[in-house]
């Protein structure tokens, strides 16, 4: 299963490190990262493969959400298919 992880919030040191650490700890492989800073706001969209991961998606979402809240960013992880069906025929 491919995941789309979106991260938005006020920029600070260590956001990417934190997110990628959680993914690595759970054996989720990163396929691409698109990241920028706009007006001091951090935006990142990350595509990852979770086929080898043991963690359930709902549990991974919970970890990302809670850790994100601690450093003031909103993190969402969604199954890629919702974007595929909406934008590809």
């Amino acid at each position: 299963m491919k995941l789309v992880v979106t991260v938005v919030g006020k920029d600070r040191v260590g956001i990417i490190a934190m997110v990628t650490r959680i993914l690595a700890d759970n054996n989720v492989n990163i396929l691409s990262i698109n990241q920028n800073i706009m007006d001091g706001f951090f935006n990142m969209i990350l595509l990852a493969e979770a086929a080898e991961s043991k963690i359930k998606l709902v549990d991974l979402q919970k970890v990302l959400r809670e850790q994100g809240e601690e450093i003031g960013v909103e993190i969402k992880a969604q199954h890629q298919d919702i974007f595929n069906v909406m934008h590809n025929i």
């Binding site: 698109n34 919702i82 595929n84």
Partner: peptide, 10 residues
């Protein structure tokens, strides 16, 4: 899927 697609959906 592009970044714009993802942003549009969300």
């Amino acid at each position: 899927i592009t970044v714009d697609d993802i942003l549009e959906t969300n």
